[in-house]
């Protein structure tokens, strides 16, 4: 089943409340996904360093002196902030790939959750409420964010199988549905040099978008071509540094509701997830059309939304 929530702020005075609003939405979707939960949050990008969010099952051991060890190996300045099983490493953006290689040497049990200038991903196995509490998600602020509650179908209930999936710098994807051609697509993408870490179908969807964008497509084009190349059921919500997008497969049996006011654009698998948002009674509420790409960006005028397909 799975539940998806998303919140894109037009009115940045709400930014300090983003975590609170998104956490409330996420917990409402517990019935749709009690196995694991995750959140991708786009925070402030004012610092010059970029962020590499990593996870460890043994944070005390793995995170102790991590920034120092990594900085020494990369010969650059690295700082860290630990949040439960996750740790955000601040380092120069051009060092991501080198850092990934070094980490696999110096801390082999560390898993990479996300990389980007503003994106941080927090996800763990457990009820959404427990996951939200352990990371103190409600205290987080940001410009936009996406959350997911998982009811597993295609792969094991693990941290790595939880959503959101990081698809490239500052990009992430969450998914409700199931892809049926993910095995053949995974083989193809790996031959093309795309890193895929799990047996999860959604990660293949994420990697597919990354691959398309590596080859010159913008996000709208990548989403549009996913309608031709991905077989199965899906409602996708994707995040980028500047905004978020929504696309549903042509059958559109996986639910989706959107709401828009002057202050925000919100996504929920069900209307229930949106009921406590400010001004929801006056919001424009609608169901996104099948096989149609929607995208909202902080770079566009705040009231427009683009329908690329």
């Amino acid at each position: 089943m799975c539940g998806i929530v998303g919140l894109f702020l037009k009115d940045q005075s709400l930014a300090p409340k983003l975590g609170t609003m998104l956490t409330d939405m996420l917990i409402t979707m517990t019935d749709r996904g009690p196995d694991s939960a995750g959140i991708a949050i786009y925070g402030d990008g004012t610092s010059k360093a970029a962020k590499l969010t990593v996870q460890s099952a043994n944070p005390d051991r793995d995170f102790s002196g991590l920034a120092e060890d990594l900085g020494q190996a990369l010969a650059t300045s690295v700082t860290q902030s630990v949040n439960d099983t996750h740790c955000v490493l601040h380092l120069p953006a051009d060092q991501f790939e080198a850092a990934r290689a070094v980490l696999s040497e110096i801390r082999p049990s560390i898993r990479i959750m996300s990389r980007g200038e503003t994106l941080e991903i927090y996800k763990e196995v457990g009820l959404p409420k427990e996951v939200a509490t352990r990371f103190n998600l409600s205290s987080m602020s940001g410009t936009h964010g996406i959350g997911h509650t998982r009811m597993a179908t295609e792969s094991a209930v693990t941290t790595m199988g939880a959503h959101p999936f990081n698809t490239g710098s500052d990009q992430c994807l969450v998914h409700n549905g199931s892809l049926s051609n993910h095995n053949s697509l995974r083989r193809k993408l790996r031959r093309e040099g795309v890193t895929i870490q799990t047996q999860n179908d959604t990660e293949v969807g994420a990697a597919y978008l990354t691959w398309k964008m590596m080859n010159g497509a913008d996000l709208g084009e990548a989403l549009k071509s996913s309608l031709d190349d991905l077989d199965g059921f899906f409602t996708f919500v994707v995040g980028t540094k500047d905004g978020f997008g929504v696309v549903r497969d042509p059958i559109a049996c996986k639910p989706a509701v959107m709401a828009e006011t002057d202050q925000y654009v919100a996504f929920g698998s069900e209307y229930r997830a949106l009921v406590n948002l400010p001004g929801i009674e006056q919001a424009r509420v609608w169901e996104p059309e099948p096989a149609t790409v929607y995208f909202w960006s902080h770079n566009n005028s705040p009231t427009t939304h683009e329908r690329a397909a």
Partner: peptide, 8 residues
């Protein structure tokens, strides 16, 4: 009677 919209 539904005053608004109906989903699938």
């Amino acid at each position: 009677i539904v005053d608004g919209d109906a989903s699938q």
